[in-house]
Design a protein around this nucleic acid. Structure first.
Lengths: 209, 209
DNA sequence: CCATAATAGAACTGTACTGTTCAGTTTCGC
DNA sequence: GCGAAACTGAACAGTACAGTTCTATTATGG
């Protein structure tokens, strides 16, 4: 069922076209709110073709989410390779830009829609929950822990619990993203002003120094 | 539509009976996964009676959520009145028990189910999102801010940004509750060991001292 | 004990949706 | 250009479900 290597380029393109159409509708209306007729229309494809590529609406949702989570470059986690973590100011600036980048992505309507669908469908499709969990929160936390460990190894910060500190940092951002993004249904999400984010970074720096 | 004051005790009881049955089914199967036949059967009531009290399935969901969020004593936020916030140890113990209490409630299957339904239905029923937001995260954050402000006024902690500190505290707990609760669909949620929670409290104490 | 209101049970309407099928058309490799 | 494969559009089968309506039964209050 649409494993890349076993498809001709033409078939690959059709499968992508269908998946992209499905993605637009799923993210706008959720799984239950989307019919296969809508998907076919949005993808510009007949329902017969849709079912030739994907055996069910559920499979199609899993493919959409798998692609969004694992392959869509727009959802790639911010990279931190080039950061200079050998001074306090380098670390602060790394955390600051990471936080701002994260909030910006997290509060995109499409990303919030993805999270909503994942959370809503996890009881029925547990694999979707694991997929998302291993691709996003675990990677993010791991990244921050690595940054802090590296700064600690460089003697930039004290001997603190880097796991707990990472959770405080990431979690504080969630306290903005959840109420002002996920729990707002009739207006666009309202990201916090950069000053709020800088307060978090400041306090974290104070914590770990 | 079931405003308490305009109902006889008998009618009030029936309305509650229906709402309680609906709650069980909605929390177990979500909104889309629940039929009005299921609700009527679960509540031990005919569909005719159901529609005599609630004009639609959607209304019934809103009533269920409103009750869970605003009136169900099981979902009341932990109280902090009696805490002694005039010493470091008092503050630590207050934060410690608050965190443990919160994690325990947050990771109950029924509470996770409530959150899932709220998040899933917020785009279609924005009032549900606002209801939850104002009843839970805002209250919780406000409570923690008040605790910290009071401790700061008592000279127990330094001149720190109590809003940012509260967000770090609450948020860190979310980094456990979301991946190990909301994003797990086929197993019971796995709360973190108390040691993890104490690490958060320790680091927060370090931050604010 | 009776008149009235509340409820049960069950059938029914209309709609919407998933997945299939079929007849005809387009596209592609060669 | 031709034969095969891919595709369209539309209809269709089967199911599920929200909400209504009917008739019969049960509880309630005076």
């Amino acid at each position: 069922m649409v494993r890349p290597q076993e498809l001709s380029p033409r078939a690959r393109a059709k499968a992508d076209q269908i998946r992209e159409g499905a993605q637009r509708v799923f993210l706008k209306r959720g799984f239950a709110g989307t019919s296969t007729d809508m998907i076919a229309a949005e993808a510009g494809v007949s329902k017969q073709t849709l079912y030739a590529y994907y055996p069910s609406k559920e499979t199609l949702l899993v493919e959409v989410l798998r692609h969004l989570i694992h392959e869509d470059p727009q959802n790639r986690l911010p990279e931190l390779e080039e950061m200079r973590l050998d001074t306090q100011e380098g670390l602060r600036s790394a955390l600051d830009s990471l936080a701002k980048e994260l909030i910006a992505r997290l509060m995109q309507p499409d990303y919030l829609a993805l999270i909503r669908v994942v959370i809503a469908e996890t009881p029925r499709l547990p694999q979707v929950g694991y997929l998302f969990r291993s691709a996003v929160p675990e990677q993010l936390l791991g990244n921050v822990v690595r940054v802090l460990n590296s700064a600690r190894a460089n003697g930039v910060i004290g001997e603190i619990n880097t796991d707990a500190a990472s959770r405080m940092f990431m979690g504080a951002l969630l306290t903005y993203a959840i109420p002002d993004g996920l729990l707002v249904g009739d207006r666009p999400p309202s990201p916090p002003p950069t000053q709020r984010i800088e307060e978090i970074v400041d306090l974290l720096m104070k914590t770990i120094s």
